[in-house]
Amino acid sequence: MNSVLAAEILKVRKRWMPYVLLLVMIAGAAVLIWLIGYVGYQEDQQGEFAGDAFRTFAFPWSIAALLDSGQFWGAAIFVAILTSSTVSTEYNWGTVRQALIRGQPRWQFLAAKLLGTAIVCIVFLLIAFGVGILFSIIATSAEGKPITLDVPGGPSLSVVVLMVLRSAAGIIPYGLLAFALAVIGRSTALGIAGTLGYMLGEGIVVAILDSIGGIAADFREIAIGHHVASLAAANRIGSGDYNSIAARELPVSADLPDVWIASLVVCLYSVVFAAVAFFVFQRRDLRSSDR
């Protein structure tokens, strides 16, 4: 399995797409830290949103801001695009058939693809996150503030790791949704559009149903975004509510499900999406016209 995984990583890392997406994510981190955070704070230090702007760019609060906004606007989209592309290009190039006639079981082919893509995603997302933190450190220094985790309610290093893991958990269901859609539709477009459509559409539907009230409002309890928001909210540093620019409903932390329940729900969705992908792929006829 190791050599199969290495082969999978070789395929992905020699494509230009992950590098372009990495640049886009780094650009996004720059916009968040410098434009929304630093410049926003400089322009209105006494204003209503000065605190939010400060917590967006200043270290260590920027960790939470980068993880939450990055999770929604960067990571989930990055993962959806890369995952959909790595799956559907195997169909487009006809290499899926070529791989399977070498005796690789179908489950192993898909598992290797999932794992290989996940490893590339993790590496690239950590690089983008690292560059974002670097921006934050520079901006914090420019503001004359100390670079330290030792602030009121500040996280320890292990808590920072936990925060990263929570964010990762919030990305996984969207990545697997993209994976399942790409496997089912053999299409990069379906994987990306379906996932982004779901992410944005869910927020809209939840808002509409919430305004209707009653049982309709309870729909949010089964929405992925609602539980991902719970994971993001658990990442807040210090007092005050969490700071997010994600385009999903943003209830106050008290209205969000418990973080463990949220983790369970997110995990359940992930398992369902993966199971659908494996089930479909295992039973599918791979004809020459599928290339």
């Binding site: 199969v4 290495a6 082969a7 070789l10 290499t95 070498r102 020459s288 290339r291």
Partner: peptide, 21 residues
């Protein structure tokens, strides 16, 4: 119509197929 990864060299393609076999 044998299929290969177009962005990779023949050697890399064979490395990938070899890994599977």
């Amino acid at each position: 119509g044998p299929a290969f990864y177009p962005h990779l060299s023949a050697r890399d393609n064979l490395r990938i197929w070899g890994a599977l076999s």
